[in-house]
């Protein structure tokens, strides 16, 4: 319980250990802790940024999807319109073609019937002539009645 040289010894060792802590212990520890603090803050900021970016991306994706849907709908509508058009066109063409063919057929029929009439006419003349000949052979002289016969033939 005496105050003695121990006081000086303790004072010196106190100074030495404070110096030691100040020089070698405190700075690296505080530096590491500050660095970690900064790192954590950075990490949090990055996470927040990431979340924000994700939100933006989601919004963008939604917009793109909506656009694509709109485009698809447009394309579909166009296609339908075109299909209708094509069908209409085909219908028109078919009708035209039908009409054309009908007209051609009618013309052909006309032609054929004219031809047939022509043939029939000549045949009738011949027949009439032949019939008349047969009748007349008995009753008229060909030469004497030539004018009449010809007139008849011409009338047919």
């Amino acid at each position: 319980m005496n105050i003695n040289l121990t006081l000086i010894a303790q004072l010196v060792s106190f100074a030495v250990f404070v110096w030691f802590t100040m020089k070698f212990v405190w700075p690296p520890l505080v530096r590491a802790m500050d660095e970690r603090k900064a790192k954590i803050a950075d990490g949090l900021a990055a996470a927040e940024r990431g979340a924000h970016e994700q939100e933006l991306a989601q919004e963008r994706a939604k917009k793109v999807l909506l656009e694509a849907k709109q485009q698809a709908a447009e394309i579909k509508a166009n296609a339908e319109k075109q299909a209708v058009m094509i069908v209409e066109e085909a219908k028109g063409k078919a009708q035209e073609e039908g009409a054309r063919q009908l007209a051609a057929a009618k013309a052909e029929i006309e032609q054929e019937s004219n031809k047939a009439r022509e043939q029939l006419r000549s045949k009738v003349a011949e027949l009439a002539l032949a019939g008349a000949e047969k009748i007349l052979r008995k009753e008229i002289d060909a030469d004497a009645h030539k004018d009449i016969v010809e007139a008849v033939a011409n009338q047919i």
């Binding site: 030691f20 802590t21 070698f24 520890l29 530096r31 590491a32 660095e35």
Partner: peptide, 10 residues
């Protein structure tokens, strides 16, 4: 403490 300080990392 010195040992901890030397190995201290962030």
């Amino acid at each position: 403490f010195l040992k901890a300080a030397q190995k201290a990392t962030a």
